[in-house]
Write a protein that binds this DNA or RNA. Structure first.
Lengths: 135, 135
DNA sequence: TACATTTGTAACATATTTTATTACAGTATG
DNA sequence: CATACTGTAATAAAATATGTTACAAATGTA
C-alpha cells in the first residue's frame, strides 16, 4: 500500500479533470507528480476498480475520467484510498490485566470514528471539480 | 519521532490520571502499554517540556500529572505530540512547469488545514478527565 | 504484418521511518 | 553505599513505503 495515496490520487484526478478529452499516459502523469510511472499505474488500477476512470491499453493509450467531476466528492476519493484519520493504536497487545490497557484501543477507535465523521462531512462538501478549479 | 505518539501519550496520561497520587515508573507504564520503557521515557520527556507532568529521579522515582485533568483537553495533547491530520504531499518536488504540479502542495495544505480545524474543534471538547472516565 | 507505444502486474531492491535494545551516567531513597 | 529509578545517546532491528526492472498483452499505425 502506498501512503500518501490520497495525495497521489488527487493529483492524478486533477490532471484528468483538466484534460477531460485526452487519454493521459502514466508516464505523462508521473512527470507531473515526479513519481515512478508504475506507482501511478497502481493508483490508477484502484481508481479503475472504483469505476471512476477508464484506461485504454496499447499505443496512444492512457487513462481518462469516466465520471463527471462535479458529481464526485473528495470524501469518496478519500474512501477509495482506504485512508482513515487515526492517530495510532497500541500495536503490541496492551496489558489486558490493566483497566486502561484493556480498553485503550476500543476507546481510541471510538474517538477516531468521530474524527472521521467530522472530516468526512467536510470532504463531502468539496467536489473534484471544486478542487480542480483551484488550479 | 514516534508515530502513534498520540496514542502512547494518551495511554500514559490516562494511567497518570487514574493514579493521581503516585509516581509511576516508566517500567510500570511500559508494562501496561507493552512498549519499551525507553520509548515511554521519551514521550514523558515531551510531556515534561510542556509542563503537564513532573518526574522524580532516583529510587521510588517516576512520573505524575502536574495539571488538573479536567483542565486539559485532547486538543492540547494532540498538539503536544506534534501531530497534524494530513493525507500526504507530493514528496518529490512535483513538476513546476505543470499548473497542477506547481500548486498541488499548496492546495493540499489548505485542505488539510481545514481538516485540522474541524478535528481540533472536536478534541477541544474532550478533557483528559472525560477520556479517562471511560475506563 | 511488423513495429512502436502503452497498460498491467509481478518480483525484487532500496530508502525511510518506526520501534526496540543496550548501555551507562546521574540522582534520590533508605 | 546498595538499590532503583530517570535521562539520554548510540545502535540495531523491523516494518513500511517507494522505486526499479522486466516482460506479457493490447492496440494503433506505417
Amino acid at each position: 500500500m502506498i501512503s500518501g495515496k490520497f495525495a497521489i490520487t488527487i493529483h492524478i484526478l486533477t490532471l484528468l479533470t483538466k484534460y477531460p478529452n485526452d487519454f493521459l499516459s502514466s508516464e505523462y502523469i508521473a512527470g507531473s507528480i515526479n513519481l515512478n510511472p508504475v506507482l501511478v499505474r497502481k493508483e490508477i488500477a484502484n481508481l479503475k476498480a472504483h469505476h471512476i476512470v477508464e484506461s485504454k491499453e496499447g499505443k496512444n493509450g492512457g487513462t481518462k475520467l469516466s465520471v463527471d467531476p462535479s458529481k464526485i466528492t473528495l470524501k469518496e476519493i478519500f474512501e477509495m484510498t482506504f485512508e482513515t484519520i487515526n492517530l495510532g493504536y497500541a500495536k503490541n497487545q496492551p496489558n489486558p490485566d490493566c483497566p486502561v490497557g484493556k480498553k485503550i484501543n476500543q476507546n481510541l477507535s471510538s474517538l477516531y470514528a468521530d474524527m472521521n465523521q467530522k472530516v468526512s462531512l467536510q470532504l463531502e462538501g468539496i467536489s473534484l471539480e471544486d478542487f480542480s478549479n483551484q488550479f
